[in-house]
Computed example of a mutant assay.
Amino acid sequence: MTTLLSPEIDVIGELTERCDRCGAAAKLEVTLISGGELAFCGHHANRHHADIVRVASKIRIEDGFSWAGK
């Protein structure tokens, strides 16, 4: 699924979730267009930035994290 709209991006103080890929501290949380949420550590968020933007309706980024998709 692709979208022509950019996801809403919010910067928040601190995330408490763990990465759904590796279990490290999450730096980015995604609300999916199709429903549901995923969390990513900095490594996985940057590695998959293009896919994240394509499937996200909302993205929350931890303050101070430099994300490749922003």
Rank of each mutant, 00 (worst) to 15 (best):
W67R: 00
D63F: 07
I61D: 09
T31F: 02
K27E: 07
C22T: 06
V53S: 07
V30C: 08
H43R: 11
L15M: 09
S6K: 11
L38E: 05
G35P: 05
E8S: 12
K58R: 14
H48N: 09
H48R: 03
L38S: 04
K70G: 03
I61W: 06
S6D: 13
K70P: 01
E29G: 00
H44E: 08
E8K: 15
F40W: 07
G42C: 09
V53H: 06
G69A: 11
A26T: 01
I33E: 06
I33K: 02
L28P: 01
D63P: 00
V55N: 07
G13I: 07
A50D: 09
A45W: 05
A26I: 00
A45Q: 04
A45Y: 13
L28H: 04
I33G: 00
G23C: 13
T2H: 14
I59S: 03
A25P: 08
R18V: 07
H49Y: 12
T16M: 01
R21Y: 08
V53I: 14
S57M: 08
V11I: 13
E37Q: 15
E17I: 01
V30W: 02
K58N: 05
L5H: 12
A56W: 00
H48L: 08
H49M: 04
K58L: 12
A26L: 01
S57W: 02
T3H: 13
A50V: 06
D51K: 05
S66E: 15
D63T: 08
A39V: 00
T3Q: 14
D51A: 10
V11W: 11
G36N: 08
I61C: 06
K27V: 02
S66Q: 08
I52Q: 01
I33V: 11
L28Y: 06
R21E: 11
S6L: 14
K58S: 06
C41W: 02
G69Y: 06
G35I: 05
L32A: 11
E62I: 01
V53Y: 09
S66K: 04
T3A: 14
E14H: 09
G42P: 05
V55E: 15
L4N: 12
C41Y: 03
N46C: 02
S6F: 07
D20E: 12
